[in-house]
């Protein structure tokens, strides 16, 4: 018994040692700082005000280069999102021209956007997008917040299962937008690239997209609703992109809470039923 325990303890130590020793992957940037998101954790919800601000940043800045092709105008008015009104969405969609057709004469035509239309892309195709951006197409942003991550390492990734940490994506987007710092002196920056602290390899084809004061956050009272800083813009647009990537998150967590409460009750009932049934079982005699 003692020997087994000793050996088991030995195995555990070796396993833990092996898991924690090796270093991180080589070319990845520094770990993005963790932002305190309103939507993290089991009861996390999007802040509609923040999503509206993030949408404003996207629309006024990022939309010049980045598409958002999986998002429709009507999504902007749906529950669990930025909660624009149906009227606002209709008016917004109408500001855009959308290609439709062919009509009865067999011709394509342009018409004002409707709420069911997808967000219009800035470029007709990836090649055009790349050509206009020094050879690198700006990626679609709809799923960006789920399509980027960074290594959490052992044992953090194990704790993440219990703390439900799932915000690597928005953390990274926020870090990327605030990561346009002075390049180290000995760093060799190729032409057309910009230094970014958090982009893998540090050379990004996206020039610093946003500066302090660039997007107007003034409310009806003429005062800014939130600081007009790069840091705040980055948080807001990252939150907005988390919503575009996971528009059903609030419904998911709400249903999850009910499902888990139900399952815990059911587990208790089944367990006591089992106890009762087995208690009545006579001893094997």
């Amino acid at each position: 018994m003692k020997l087994t325990k000793l050996l088991t303890a030995g195995v555990f130590t070796v396993v833990l040692g092996a898991l924690s020793a090796p270093a991180q992957a080589s070319e990845a940037g520094p770990t993005p700082p963790s932002v305190n998101w309103s939507f993290s954790g089991p009861f996390g919800k999007f802040d509609p005000q923040q999503l509206q601000r993030g949408f404003k940043v996207y629309r006024e800045v990022c939309a010049a280069c980045h598409s958002l092709k999986y998002v429709t105008f009507r999504n902007l008015a749906e529950p669990g999102g930025p909660l624009f009104t149906a009227g606002q969405v209709k008016a917004l969609a109408a500001e855009y021209k959308v290609q439709d057709g062919p009509n009865d004469a067999g011709e394509m035509f342009e018409r004002p956007g409707r709420p069911a239309d997808h967000w219009p892309s800035p470029f007709p195709n990836d090649n055009a997008a790349a050509a206009a951006n020094g050879g690198k197409a700006p990626p679609d942003l709809s799923l960006m917040a789920k399509a980027r991550t960074y290594e959490r390492g052992f044992p953090t990734f194990v704790f993440d299962m219990f703390t439900q940490f799932a915000e690597q994506g928005p953390d990274y987007i926020h870090a990327l937008l605030t990561g346009y710092v002075e390049k180290p002196k000995d760093f060799n920056l190729p032409d057309g690239g910009t230094y970014n602290k958090y982009f893998p390899g540090h050379v990004i084809a996206m020039p610093k997209p946003i500066n302090d004061g660039q997007v107007d956050y003034k409310g009806p009272d003429g005062k800014p609703q939130a600081p007009e800083t790069v840091d705040q813009y980055a948080k807001d647009v990252a939150a907005f992109l988390m919503w575009t990537a996971e528009p059903k998150m609030e419904a998911r967590k709400a249903l999850g809470f009910r499902a888990i409460i139900f399952l815990i009750l059911l587990a208790g009932l089944t367990y006591f039923a089992k106890k009762r049934i087995w208690k009545k079982l006579p001893d094997p005699a």
Binding site: K146, A147, G169, G256, F257, I260
Partner: peptide
């Protein structure tokens, strides 16, 4: 209960970001 935990709260934990 374990299944629901992953499904409802960390549905992408066991997936890869690149697959988005």
């Amino acid at each position: 209960i374990l299944f629901a935990w992953f499904l409802f709260y960390i549905p992408n934990f066991m997936g890869h970001a690149d697959n988005y």
